[in-house]
């Protein structure tokens, strides 16, 4: 099994840390992982993305141009990465701020209202964990207990009191993700 994922959105949305938690979860279940961020002017200008690969085999190239799954969190990223999803692949996006919804018909598309949900929870910062939950529902490749272990590993100890609220956010994500059908 090899899963190649791009997570893309604004800097500050927790794109990179979501990727890190996912990668750590892979390590927790003895898989090979890589995490390749965009760095530099791109990030400084506002958009951030990270490529995460989880595989049973040694990972060849950590740099990819097509993906099994794209998790898209702003319009710029939609414009850039919708076409990069492999045919038959998965696109998950938060409709918040999206002006042009995905148009491809050869991929599975899911919506997750994570920004809204995080706001309802009173914790905007767990936005990325709601998204992660949605991904885990659509692609249950890493087990939930490994995700929790991964979360624990990637959060500095001084934030460990926030583990329960992050876990709750992931579980909300599992519940609210839904398939998007074009009208």
């Amino acid at each position: 099994m090899t899963e190649e994922i791009i997570i893309a959105g604004f800097g500050g949305q927790g794109v990179l840390s979501m990727g890190k938690i996912l990668a750590y979860s892979g390590i927790m279940q003895d898989q090979e992982v890589s995490w390749m961020p965009s760095y530099g002017p791109e990030m400084r200008g506002g958009t951030a993305n990270v490529t995460v690969i989880i595989s049973d085999e040694r990972i060849s190239s950590p740099i990819l141009s097509t993906f099994d799954t794209a998790i898209i969190l702003n319009q710029q990223s939609m414009d850039k990465f919708e076409d990069a999803v492999k045919p038959g692949g998965v696109l998950i996006y938060d409709p918040n701020g999206i002006t042009r919804h995905p148009e491809r018909e050869d991929i599975e598309v899911y919506q997750i209202a994570a920004a809204e949900e995080a706001s309802n929870m009173g914790m905007n910062k767990v936005f990325n964990m709601v998204v992660l939950g949605g991904y885990l529902k659509v692609k249950p490749l890493v087990k939930m207990d490994n995700v929790i272990k991964g979360l624990k590993k990637s959060l500095p100890e001084r934030y460990h009191h926030l583990l329960p609220v992050n876990e709750k956010a992931i579980k909300r994500g599992l519940e609210i993700v839904q398939e998007y059908k074009k009208n």
């Binding site: 990668a23 090979e32 890589s34 390749m36 961020p37 760095y39 950590p62 740099i63």
Partner: peptide, 10 residues
């Protein structure tokens, strides 16, 4: 190079 420096692996 920049890729090996910036990427994360196990």
């Amino acid at each position: 190079d920049g890729a090996i420096g910036q990427m994360m692996e196990k």
